[in-house]
Simulated assay, not measured.
Amino acid sequence: MRRRVRVVVRGGVQGVGFRYWTADAARAAGLAGWVRNLPGGEVEAEIEGDDDAVGRLVDALRAGPPLAHVTGVHTEDVPVRGEDGFRIAP
């Protein structure tokens, strides 16, 4: 089953390679969507693909890359868009 989630990650998550790490992990898992920095210091992503793969990436975002310090992750299901590829959004 295909699923899409919006994720907002809080903590020390900007300036530590979080977006690039997320994009690499998503592409390796065959997932679609995007990731971007938010003005308030959070990282936001929409991730789409196989339900299990999406869940594994969301779980990985709870730890993040080695230099990140994640203090919170908010997720919500959003409508599937049928998107292909994963990008770093402006």
Rank of each mutant, 00 (worst) to 15 (best):
A53E: 13
L57G: 00
T22Q: 06
A53W: 10
A25G: 03
D50R: 06
G33K: 05
R19V: 08
I47T: 02
D24N: 11
A29H: 00
W21N: 12
A26T: 08
R19N: 07
F18S: 11
R19M: 07
T22K: 04
I47P: 02
V35I: 04
A23G: 10
G41T: 12
V43P: 02
E46S: 00
A29L: 04
E48G: 07
V35P: 02
L57P: 01
G30Q: 10
E42H: 05
E44C: 01
A45V: 03
E42C: 11
T22S: 05
L57R: 01
G55F: 05
G49T: 13
F18M: 14
F18R: 15
A25E: 11
L38R: 13
E46M: 00
W21Q: 09
V54C: 05
G41S: 11
I47F: 01
G30T: 12
G49P: 08
V54G: 01
E44Q: 07
R27L: 09
L38V: 09
V35Q: 04
A25I: 03
P39N: 06
R56K: 03
A53R: 08
R56W: 02
D52V: 14
P39T: 06
L38N: 15
L57Q: 00
V43N: 08
G40D: 15
R27G: 06
G40F: 13
A32T: 08
E46Q: 05
A45S: 05
G33T: 02
V35F: 01
W34G: 00
G40M: 14
P39K: 15
D24M: 08
G41Q: 13
F18I: 15
E48A: 11
A28N: 12
A26E: 08
R56T: 00
D50T: 03
A53M: 15
E48C: 13
N37M: 15
E44H: 01
